[in-house]
Structures are given as structure tokens and as C-alpha cells.
Design a protein around this nucleic acid. Structure first.
Length: 298
DNA sequence: CTAGGATCCTGTCAGC
DNA sequence: TGCTGACAGGATCCTA
């Protein structure tokens, strides 16, 4: 689940609870979910690289957390702070079946939950964080990237469809399935378009869209998380707040009123407004072979 | 080198 | 009710 805005929200939220507090012990409930040697120490700093969260300790060790699809971090102290993949775990009794790592703090407990076990936590020397294989391969985030740089990257991957290209964290960093769909919609670009067919002007629109969509999500992220946690078992309206197309198949496009469709592109569920996002080049439709209609609602 | 598909894993939901 | 297949807010590995 968590894409860049969610991880940034977690970083800011968790800051209030664990900064300057000490990890006293670690319980690893699932070996696959923890790499390295458990470490104790006081939290000096929380950083983020793309979708990875780094917790620096005062003993030269850092804890890296990647939530992948279904990871969650839930801090249980005087109050509870929960973020990541939305589920009942936010309010459930912990640890539970999906709890993989338990970090005991001097002021509470931090649970790493992960239904599908794709995510991980790991310890490494603070000095080696930026050399870490995953971190080191990450491209710039949309705010740091220029239109020219982005355009060059798209041209370099001209034969793959634009959605697959912008999901690649080594090309542009931070977007996941939600924000890729939302950004492409905002820029009026069909996700099956070949990256090479995207014009310079469209590239600029897409880059701006990615920044705006994620800015908006970060800005509202904290409050929606808080709302979610306080809700008594009911699902939060996390997506409803800002999603224009994501998981809105069958509903009306907020811009033109056409019916939003769900298709499959690059192996991922993909949401589009067929009127606002058109395949403008003939080669586009044949190129993204995996693009197919999933549901028809017109 | 690129691009696309399979894969890791657990859980839920639609359709029979 | 039970079974089956599709799918899921990510990234890597394998193949052509």
C-alpha cells in the first residue's frame, strides 16, 4: 500500500511518539520480516528515502522499514498511532496473526504488521544507509526532478507504457499504483501510452501532477490517519478524500462525467477516464499488450 | 541494455 | 457450504 505520501505521513506521525525514546528489546515473530541483528538504542532521527523509512539510533545503527503492499506500523503507548495499509489491525488487539516484529520502547510498543510478508525491517550501520542497494538505486523524487530530466528518462524507456515507466522507482521515485493513476488522470495521459509518445509538454504536466497529487495527500494524510484510528472499527475514507479515479470504476469522472473504467496495464489494476485520457497514437494500443478492459459500466 | 511476466505471501471476495 | 480463481496502494528475478 504505502506510497511516498503514506510513508512521509508515518515519518511525521511517528516522530511525535518515538523521537528521543529508547528501543529496549526486539521480538522477531517472523524471520523473513527482519534482516540483521536486533539493536537497542535511542531514536535520533527519522528519515525517508522514497517509500523506505529510516530510524536512526544513537549507537550508529539504523533501522530500515519498507512496508511494500501490506505493511503497517502501529505504535501503542498512552495513545495509539497507526499507519500504513488500512485494516482492522489499526484498532485490533496486538500482537496478532499478522504481527511480524515487535519493538519495545521505553514509552510503548511499536508493531510491524504485514499480512503478505512482502515488507521488511532491517538493521544496518547508519553510515551505510545511503549505500544500501535499494536506497542507492532510487531515482529523484518528483520535486527534485526537472522536466528535461524526466523527459529524457521517458525517451530512454520509449517502448514501455507510461504507467509502467512511472511506477519504476529507479526512473522516478515515490509513485505507486494509486498516485500513478491519479497523476496520469490529472495530466490527461492514457496509462497505456508509450513513454516515447509522451510530448515534452505532457511530461511537464505529468511531473506537476505527480507533485500536486502527492503534496495534497501528504497535507491531508496526517488528519485522515488520525481520523482512521479514532474511528471505532469502521473503515476510514482515506481514498475518498482525494481519489479522482482510483477504485472509482463505474462512477462518474469528476471532470467530464464520463464513466470511469478499470483496465489492466503492466499487470496492475488501472483506473482511467476514457474521455479525458485517450490513446492518441496508433502504436500505443498495440504496444501495451497487457492493456485490457476489465469492467464495462456504460 | 530493455520490457514483460512470474513470483514472493496471506486474505478476501465473486461466482459456481 | 465449500471450492476455485482473481485480485491486492511493491519490487525483484528470470526470460527473450
Amino acid at each position: 500500500m504505502p506510497e511516498l505520501p503514506e510513508v512521509e505521513t508515518i515519518r511525521r506521525g511517528l516522530n511525535k511518539f518515538i523521537l528521543k525514546h529508547k528501543i529496549t528489546s526486539t521480538d522477531v515473530l517472523c524471520q523473513k520480516s527482519f534482516i540483521g541483528t536486533p539493536a537497542t538504542g535511542r531514536v535520533n532521527n527519522l528519515r525517508r528515502f522514497g517509500k523506505a523509512l529510516i530510524i536512526d539510533l544513537d549507537n550508529g545503527t539504523s533501522l530500515m522499514v519498507h512496508l511494500r503492499m501490506t505493511g503497517q506500523l502501529i505504535f501503542d503507548g498512552k495513545e495509539r498511532y497507526a499507519a500504513g495499509h488500512p485494516s482492522d489491525n489499526f484498532t485490533a488487539e496486538l500482537p496478532n496473526r499478522q504481527t511480524r516484529v515487535v519493538l519495545k520502547f521505553d514509552n510503548g510498543t511499536l508493531y510491524f504488521n504485514d499480512q503478505r510478508k512482502f515488507g521488511f525491517t532491517k538493521t544496518l550501520p547508519t553510515s551505510k544507509v545511503e549505500n544500501d542497494d535499494f536506497i542507492q538505486k532510487l531515482a529523484k523524487e518528483p520535486w527534485q526532478m526537472t522536466v528535461d530530466e524526466f523527459y529524457d528518462k521517458l525517451q530512454k524507456h520509449s517502448k514501455s507504457c507510461i504507467k509502467a515507466t512511472i511506477l519504476d522507482q529507479t526512473i522516478i521515485c515515490g509513485l505507486g499504483n494509486i498516485y500513478a493513476d491519479e497523476s496520469l488522470f490529472a495530466a490527461g495521459i492514457h496509462p497505456a501510452r508509450l513513454s516515447g509518445s509522451v510530448t515534452k509538454a505532457e511530461t511537464a504536466k505529468l511531473l506537476t501532477a505527480a507533485r500536486n497529487v502527492m503534496d495534497r495527500s501528504i497535507a491531508s494524510g496526517g488528519s485522515t490517519m488520525a481520523t482512521y484510528v479514532k474511528a471505532d472499527g469502521t473503515k476510514g475514507d482515506y481514498l475518498e478524500k482525494f481519489a479522482q479515479v482510483f477504485r472509482r470504476e463505474g462512477k462518474k469522472c469528476p471532470r467530464c462525467g464520463a464513466t470511469i473504467q478499470k483496465i489492466k496495464i503492466a499487470g496492475r489494476g488501472t483506473h482511467i477516464c476514457p474521455h479525458c485520457q485517450k490513446l492518441s497514437f496508433k502504436s500505443d494500443s498495440s504496444a501495451c499488450h497487457s492493456a485490457e478492459r476489465i469492467k464495462r459500466n456504460d
